[in-house]
């Protein structure tokens, strides 16, 4: 029996699929070096007293103690909480409502969708700057209303420390709600048309169909939207920089800006590391319940 050599022997494990493995090197490197390596590096160095340069002089939880004792960080967290809760609720409500309106066989649907979504194409810097201008008390909305005759009207969120975060919220929602609308719309379109027919045959009013039937069916879409909004919230940075630079005073500081300032402006690296580790922790707190809901119980193929 003539057996040609080379093909009868089992090749080495490592060499099997070699091209695919070589092609995956960038992915493996990114996953291991950047996402795992850099994250661990930062977490480790957050327990040191690194100032201008990173050094491995461990000081336990000192940086975290200092962090939670700093007023600026506390203001940042409070702002993030307000911004987060409001933007989560409002974006979901607005996004879903607009999607539901557009799903009602509206003429010029594409035009409406184009208008509602274009802010998402703009950067946070552009968004922040244009809303800074619109909310300018001397020329913007406040002045317009005063010109109409209501001379005592006051609406200057960017100059009022108590409500400045809501000024940023206005811009944030304007920029991001279109995306959620699109996702919700895709979710609505994914629902079997027969559901609507059945609801109509049963004589259920439209609004009730949405609340009782449609929204529960769209649970996965809502979860996706929720995760999307939430992971965006933690990263809020550019918008604040453009709109208020954290002001007035420190009234509109956010954690991401705190991290940047500590790391790159005030040469207090370990503080920045500690603050960013806190951001990571908060993301994990958001992600774990989601991962549990999404993947817990049943495994997906």
């Amino acid at each position: 029996m003539a057996t040609s050599p080379g093909t009868s022997k089992r090749p080495m494990r490592l060499l099997r699929n070699l091209n695919a493995k070589i092609a995956s090197i960038p992915m493996v490197a990114t996953a291991l070096v950047i996402f795992v390596g850099c994250t661990l590096w930062t977490v480790v160095y957050s327990f040191t007293d690194s100032k201008l340069l990173p050094r491995l002089n461990f000081v336990g939880f000192d940086q975290y103690d200092r962090l939670w004792g700093t007023r600026r960080w506390l203001v940042s967290i409070e702002n993030l909480a307000w911004y987060g809760v409001c933007s989560l609720i409002l974006t979901l409500v607005i996004g879903f409502t607009l999607a539901a309106l557009l799903d009602r066989k509206v003429r010029f649907e594409n035009t409406f969708r184009t208008i509602l979504l274009y802010p998402f194409a703009l950067s946070f810097i552009v968004t922040g700057l244009v809303w800074q201008w619109i909310l300018n008390p001397d020329f913007g909305v406040q002045q317009v209303v005063r010109d109409w005759g209501w001379t005592s009207f006051t609406f200057d969120p960017l100059y009022n420390p108590d409500i400045v975060i809501f000024g940023i919220l206005i811009a944030g929602i304007w920029q991001g709600s279109g995306l959620i609308m699109v996702i919700m719309l895709a979710g609505l379109r994914g629902i079997d048309e027969d559901i609507w027919k059945a609801a109509r045959v049963d004589g259920i009013p439209t609004w009730k169909t949405y609340v009782v039937v449609i929204i529960p069916m769209m649970r996965p879409v809502f979860v996706t939207a929720l995760v999307l909004i939430a992971s965006g919230i933690v990263k809020v940075y550019d918008l604040v920089v453009a709109q208020t630079s954290g002001g007035p005073g420190i009234a509109s500081e956010v954690p991401a800006k705190y991290v940047y300032d500590k790391m790159f402006a005030s040469q207090n690296l370990a503080q920045g590391f500690a603050a960013s580790t806190m951001m990571l922790v908060s993301v994990i707190i958001i992600l774990i319940p989601w991962a549990y809901l999404e993947f817990g119980g049943k495994k997906r193929g």
Binding site: A31, F35, C38, K235, G272, L280, V283
Partner: peptide, 19 residues
Amino acid sequence: FFTILILGAFIPYQVMLYP
């Protein structure tokens, strides 16, 4: 590696900036 990559998308950039 793919799972790490996807989870990595959720890590705040701030954590990885300095390294």
